[in-house]
């Protein structure tokens, strides 16, 4: 076995290991879709996305809003103001906030 073939063999067996990890405990015919629910499946992951059409069914039927007036919307996660926040990192800069103000005017 030359070096090239040997390396192929190494990678190939790594693929087998990789697929074994992915396969877990499912035992199904090749190509069949898994129907077994993995034992540690989290039943509530991403549940917010599981009820999008609740918003359509009745007025206000989503996100727990009970007031009509949306103007005085509270910040979900912002203990500090936007301007203070931009001083501490580069995710949002003063330039970005300026741009957002420009965007606001276009609407």
């Amino acid at each position: 076995m030359n070096a090239k073939t040997k390396k192929n063999a190494v990678v190939h067996s790594a693929l087998l290991v990789a697929l074994s990890l992915a396969g877990g405990q499912a035992v199904h015919a090749a190509g069949a879709k898994a129907t077994e629910i993995p034992p540690d499946w989290q039943p509530c992951a991403g549940v917010a996305k599981a009820g999008m059409n609740d918003c359509a069914s009745k007025l206000h039927a989503c996100a727990g809003l009970s007031k009509i007036d949306n103007e005085a919307d509270s910040y979900v996660y912002m203990p500090k103001g936007l301007c203070e926040r931009i001083a501490k990192g580069t995710v949002l800069t003063k330039e970005d906030v300026k741009k957002m103000m420009e965007m606001q005017k276009k609407m």
């Binding site: 039943p43 991403g46 359509a56």
Partner: peptide
């Protein structure tokens, strides 16, 4: 429940409803 919430092809909502 609303059927429109289960129009996907997989994921948590469908699994939960099956259970």
């Amino acid at each position: 429940t609303h059927p429109e919430n289960y129009f996907g092809e997989g994921g948590t909502a469908l699994r939960t409803l099956e259970r």
